[in-house]
Every structure is written in structure tokens, then in C-alpha cells.
């Protein structure tokens, strides 16, 4: 089972965004798309989720259930944390009692307290809201998880904990993950493969096998090693536009 991009190009108006992308993501892989801000990473994720169609080439997914986690949690502010986490299951037709039990179990596993489950998003911290969004995605037991800088707005310690949680949950579900970031340290912390993209229009400049860093020190060393690669330096320094963060 896999997700395949074959010679995919796409432009918005006259501006090319993606150029000749060939990529394959297999079940069990945790693939990070790493590239400067605005290079077209999110566009690739939206293509993978079926929200966009390619201008040229083919995007084919053999996965049955894809879940998306975005940078903003996109919670329904009139529902409590439990009902938000159960939203995807409700859409899939899971009966009310069962979906609330499952949502509760996942939220508690992700570190929310019992008292938080009845809170509406306005009363949740940024980290808690993002965990609810993550729970909503994991609750449908996806075989493909698409994540668009899901922890970018969170402080470093919390981000690290959530990265570990996401990796553990993805492994537990034996799902494939496509994770977008412009943060090198985050990429080396979670990825089993790092796909390095150039500035817009995005091309794949490197496809690197990676063992996820076990702690912050290891992550910084791995990030520094990655940045020293000539192809990475070329991707970062060519042309104008966005940034890659360490």
C-alpha cells in the first residue's frame, strides 16, 4: 500500500509551485517534507489528501483512510474537547457511545486530564487544542496521516513531547505519515525519511533515510549534519524567498 506522486507539476495562475515531483510513501514510513517556507510543501500535502488535483502528472493513493492535522487545530468552538475528538468517528458513522469512549481513551493517552474533556476550545491551551486535533485524526485509525506543521505554534518542550507522541501513535497504527515542516530539528526528530525540497517551484533535491533523534542533543547534531550536506545548502541558498529553521 502506498501513496505515489508521478511527475507531478502544479502552478497557481502563471506561477509554477511544484515541478516534476516523483515520490512514493509506503505503509509504516514516516516521511518528512522539509523545505523553505512557501516552497510548496502544503500544496503537496493537499494533493496527497485529494483537496487539490495536479496540473500535470498523477497522484495516486492506495490508502483507505487519510487523516489531516494542520498548524491551526480547526476545532469546532461550540463543541467540547470530547465531541471534537469524536468528530471524525461521527462522520464515519460510529455510534455515539462507542465514539465517545474511544475519543476519551485517546485524549487521556495524549495527556489531557478528565476535567479537560468537557472544556470548549476557548478554554484549552494551544498545546491541548492541538492534542485534541491530533486525537480527532488518530481516532479514525487512519492508515495515512497528513500533517502540516502541526506543532509550529507550540513551545519547544511541548513540541518535542508531541513529536514523540505522534511517532508512537503512527507506529501503533502501522500508518504511513507525510509530515510537512521547515524546521530541520523537527524533521530529524520524527522522520524515517527526509525529502528535501528546493525553493519554489519545489523540486526534490534529496531523499535521505533518517533514524529519529532520541533527544534534543542528538536532534541538534543530526540537524547540523543535514545542513552541512551540499545538496541541502544548495536548496537553502538558491533563489529568494523563505527560510529553513534550525
Amino acid at each position: 500500500m502506498n501513496l505515489t506522486f508521478s511527475r507531478v507539476s502544479l502552478g497557481f495562475g502563471d506561477e509554477p509551485v511544484l515541478a516534476d515531483i516523483d515520490l512514493e510513501v509506503a505503509a509504516g514510513e514516516f516521511v518528512v517534507l522539509l523545505g523553505p517556507s512557501g516552497c510548496g510543501k502544503t500544496t503537496m500535502l493537499r494533493l496527497a489528501g485529494g483537496a487539490l488535483a495536479p496540473g500535470r502528472g498523477i497522484v495516486r493513493s492506495a490508502f483507505a483512510r487519510a487523516a489531516v492535522v494542520t498548524q491551526t487545530p480547526r476545532l469546532l468552538k461550540w463543541m467540547d474537547a470530547l465531541d471534537n475528538a469524536a468528530f471524525g468517528m461521527k462522520a464515519a458513522g460510529v455510534p455515539r457511545g462507542e465514539r465517545r469512549d474511544r475519543a476519551r481513551a485517546i485524549l487521556l493517552r495524549l495527556g489531557l486530564a478528565d476535567a479537560d474533556l468537557a472544556k470548549k476550545p476557548a478554554r484549552l491551551s494551544g498545546g491541548m487544542a492541538q492534542r485534541v486535533a491530533l486525537a480527532r485524526a488518530l481516532a479514525i485509525e487512519p492508515d495515512l496521516i497528513l500533517m502540516d506543521e502541526p506543532f509550529a505554534a507550540l513551545e519547544a518542550g511541548l513540541r518535542r513531547r508531541l513529536q514523540d507522541l505522534v511517532r508512537a501513535e503512527t507506529e501503533r497504527l502501522r500508518a504511513a505519515a507525510l509530515f510537512v515542516t521547515h524546521d530541520v530539528t523537527e524533521a530529524v526528530s520524527v522522520a524515517s525519511r527526509i525529502v528535501l525540497l528546493s525553493r519554489r517551484p519545489a523540486r526534490i533535491v534529496a531523499d535521505i533515510a533518517n533514524a529519529p533523534a532520541r533527544d534534543a542533543a542528538e536532534a541538534f547534531e543530526a540537524a547540523a549534519a543535514l545542513l552541512r550536506r551540499p545538496d541541502a545548502a544548495a536548496a537553502i541558498n538558491a533563489g529568494g524567498g523563505g527560510e529553513i529553521d534550525l
Binding site: G49, A51, A66, A67, V68, T70, T72, R74, L76, F87, G88, K90, A91, A92, R136, I140
Partner: peptide, 13 residues
């Protein structure tokens, strides 16, 4: 519109 997109991604009826 982000909430509409979220609902579409979860294939809500």
C-alpha cells in the same frame, strides 16, 4: 472555510 475543509477531509456527510 477552514472548518468546511476539515469536515470534507473527514468525509462528513
Amino acid at each position: 472555510p477552514a472548518l468546511d475543509e476539515m469536515a470534507a477531509q473527514f468525509r462528513a456527510p
